[in-house]
Design a protein around this nucleic acid. Structure first.
Length: 789
DNA sequence: CAGTGAGCGAGCTTCCGCTTGACTT
């Protein structure tokens, strides 16, 4: 007969706790929830006070029967799931499903996984908190009702298999609304002026400094007039302001901030961050990675203090406890931190190592001193104008936490880095070397990345640490949203430069609008969103979650009865569903764009089963209209006649090669070149079938031929074992069966034998063959599951 | 490998949150 069975949610946690408790205690894991509402059916008896019908899902049967068996043999069962709404519900589901009895069952909670915390918890057991359980049931049932009544409505009114829910629909709405802001955005330009100045110190040493004019000019005329004034002006330092300032470290990571920083600093996707963090957690390197708390345990604060004092010195240590500010935080866990601060790194895969070091630095920095800075602003006065140039300088007097970590920002417009200034005196005279007035456009609001969407969701209190990554996957899988890169566009800007009292007026090309891994709404995402906003504005409201959360809190505190709350909500919601089912017409998007000048027929834009498309003429018994799909970047609401007509230019004959026509077109698998009955894929995001030139097409054809004949893009006579070959992610170097990356921004065509040898020499040490094989099998696996739809 | 867009109708789709494996190439 076993003495004690302790049940926690995670198996990794079970393992550590078992060590702390020692003999007499068996620690098992429930692997999260063990019961849920029926998968296929609604699972809620609406007319029977919303009675939920719970089922143990198939993949949990084994866990449940195993727990049941051990529970039967144990004297005391300790339900040690997390101390939040979901955790309490898990405890109750266990109690109910395992058919435990009240006398032998104890509910315990602990916030940190230390021996003290756990033995303390064992000493202070309590009963299951049914108010908290009911708050969870209300949450679960509400989500089910919303999801399972809204989704079928979409199947009827828009198209089958669509989905809607309290969380995902708001996430889509954020992306749709941001896109509309961007569509409505009109870029405005201004002339921003900066000058390079020169001066001498007492000893005759020369210095150069760059200064920015505070005022920007709206027209070229004004900018020109200002430069005219600069011509014979005197420049004098009129003011020097020195201000002390301090910078404080950011709190240690939560799930959301970890996802954001890993995205900005390491380029990880949200899912990738979670997968890597899970590995680190299972290996015992970090604490739990799904948390909304910024708090650290006493133990963590103490050990980090030791580590900092030893490594950096006493003056670098400043212990801090942060307060969680985010909406709806439940704080069942600690912040994400290394389990042992003495390990500043771990031996693991490259990505695990990178993420671990990020976590270590952030947590350590959070317990370090403020950085002390000195900010200097120098003003330069003109004798012939009232405008003022400024120079900003910053000196770090004491680096503090900056020694370890600096949080990055989402701001894409790189702010100029203030730096150390040369010795300057008040009233010092300066000479200009050049003064530039460049036309600068302002930027549209930034599109969401996965990580910035998570930040916004957290801000609104929508979703939980465990659902941020899956929610993004869902809205991408439903094709409401796509994540992709967009190439930059080019524009011409006007520039004025004053040099030796001569003003040069010229133009420059500038690239703008490049997007990397951003979230764009699709047409169907827009249609579904507009439908929901029109008919269910309360559900899709940004504050809906926050307001129902307040009601759940009241249930948890025993102030409100959960059935009453659901009745209240459902009455209004369901009548709206019925009303929309009856009164709202099936969505049928169709718009006339104008008349096609060549055929004189009407041009339509429509939405069909394969997405948005344009059509010339109507379908009649004798005539079949021409069809073409919209580009991913085009929308029904904004496409113009001109853009629509361009879509009909495919297939495009772009010239002759070896006496055969070369055609460009878009097919089932993307854009391609057709030549002599053979297909050549165009490079995604690089080649555009509407504008690709014959020269480039021939290059692509010859590249493929070369690969087919010799298996290599390029070979070297100096060494036959050395090749440049083409892989799934582009060209790479192959040497002695080992692969080497070609540095980004380098074109393989330009590589000489010596270059390649240099790349191989400077490349990090290669993996053994076995490891390469392992990663290969892993990537092909994930590749396959991605393809499976 | 390489564009689709008819119409009928059976049978199916769908939510959010808590946790990790287990199928094959």
């Amino acid at each position: 007969m076993e003495e004690n069975l302790v049940i926690v949610e995670s198996p990794a946690k079970a393992k550590t706790i078992e060590k702390f408790l020692g003999k007499g205690y068996t620690v098992k894991s429930s692997f999260g929830h063990i019961r849920d509402l029926s998968k296929k059916k609604l699972g809620v008896e609406i007319d029977n006070d919303f009675k939920p019908n719970y089922e143990v899902p198939e993949d949990k049967l084994k866990t449940v029967s195993e727990l049941k068996k051990i529970a039967k043999k144990s004297k005391t069962i300790w339900l040690a799931s997390d101390e939040d709404r979901e955790g309490e519900a898990i405890a109750w589901h266990l109690f109910d499903t395992l058919e435990l009895n009240e006398k032998s069952t104890k509910r315990i909670v602990f916030h940190e996984i230390t021996k003290d915390a756990i033995t303390n918890a064992i000493k202070n057991p309590r009963k299951i908190d049914y108010n908290l359980v009911n708050a969870q049931q209300a949450r679960r049932i509400l989500d089910r009702l919303v999801g399972f009544e809204l989704s079928p409505l979409l199947w009827k009114k828009i198209k089958p298999s669509l989905s809607a829910g309290r969380v995902q629909s708001v996430a889509v709405r954020l992306i749709v609304e941001r896109e509309r802001e961007i569509i409505a955005f009109k870029a405005v330009s201004q002339y921003k002026v900066n000058g390079i100045f020169e001066f001498e110190d007492n000893k005759g040493k020369k210095y150069e400094v760059k200064a920015d004019l505070q005022k920007a000019f709206t027209t070229k005329k004004d900018a020109l007039a200002f430069l005219e004034k600069c011509k014979n002006s005197e420049f004098t330092i009129s003011d020097i302001q020195v201000k002390p300032s301090i910078k404080s470290p950011a709190p240690p990571f939560t799930t959301s901030t970890l996802q954001q920083e890993a995205s900005r600093k390491l380029g990880f996707s949200v899912l990738q961050t979670m997968t890597v963090a899970q590995k680190l957690y299972e290996a015992g390197f970090i604490t739990y990675m799904r948390t909304d708390s910024v708090q650290l345990s006493e133990l963590a604060i103490a050990t980090s203090k030791n580590e900092i004092q030893e490594k950096y010195g006493k003056e670098y240590s400043k212990t801090r406890q942060f307060q969680t500010k985010s909406k709806g935080a439940q704080e069942a866990h600690e912040a994400i931190r290394p389990t042992y601060f003495s390990n500043s790194t771990v031996s693991a895969s490259a990505n695990e190592k990178k993420l671990y070091e990020l976590i270590w630095k952030r947590a350590i920095a959070s317990q370090m001193s403020d950085a002390v800075l000195e900010k200097t602003t120098i003003s330069i006065k003109l004798s012939k104008s009232n405008e003022v140039f400024y120079i900003n300088g910053e000196v770090i007097k004491f680096d503090g936490f900056l020694k370890v970590y600096l949080e990055s920002t989402d701001d894409e417009n790189e702010e100029q880095t203030a730096s150390l200034l040369p010795p300057m005196r008040l009233n010092q005279k300066l000479n200009y070397i050049s003064i530039n007035a460049d036309e600068k456009y302002n930027h549209h609001p930034a599109r969401y990345t996965e990580a910035s969407l998570v930040r916004k969701m957290e801000e609104l209190g929508i979703g939980r640490p465990s659902t941020y990554a899956p929610t993004i996957s869902t809205i991408i899988k439903r094709e409401y949203v796509i994540k992709e890169d967009r190439q930059s566009k080019e524009r011409t800007i006007n520039c004025l430069t004053l040099n030796n009292n001569v003003i040069k007026d010229y133009q420059k090309k500038e690239n703008y609008g490049y997007e990397k891994a951003k979230l764009f709404p699709t047409e169907i995402g827009i249609i579904v969103n507009d439908f929901l906003v029109d008919n269910f504005s309360n559900i899709i409201d940004f504050n809906f979650t926050a307001s129902v959360e307040q009601e759940f809190d009241k249930i948890a505190e025993g102030e409100t009865e959960w059935v009453k709350m659901l009745k209240n909500f459902y009455k209004k919601f369901h009548s709206k569903i019925e009303e929309s089912t009856k009164n709202v017409e099936k969505s049928n998007i169709e718009k006339v764009l104008g008349i096609d000048p060549t055929t004189k027929k009407q041009v339509y834009v429509k939405f069909g089963k394969f997405g948005p498309y344009v059509q010339i003429g109507e379908k009649t018994e004798t005539e079949k209209p021409k069809y073409a799909s919209l580009k991913k970047s085009q929308y029904v609401e904004t496409i113009t006649l001109e853009e629509a007509l361009e879509l009909f230019t495919l297939p495009r004959n772009i010239g002759k090669f070896e006496e055969n026509d070369v055609l460009s077109n878009i097919g089932r698998f993307g854009p391609y070149i057709l030549h002599n009955k053979k297909f050549y894929s165009l490079k995604k995001g690089v080649d555009d079938p509407y504008s690709v030139k014959l020269e480039r097409a021939i290059e692509i054809i010859e590249e493929k031929r070369k690969m087919e004949t010799s298996g290599a893009l390029k070979e070297f006579k100096e060494d036959t074992k050395l090749k440049i070959v083409k892989g799934r992610f582009g060209a790479y170097i192959k040497f002695n069966d080992l692969n080497y990356r070609i540095p980004s921004k380098t074109d393989w065509k330009d590589l000489t034998y010596d270059d390649v040898v240099a790349i191989i020499k400077t490349s990090p040490e290669k993996k053994t063959k076995k490891e390469v094989k392992e990663t290969k099998s892993k990537s092909s696996k994930s590749n396959k599951s991605r393809k499976k739809k």
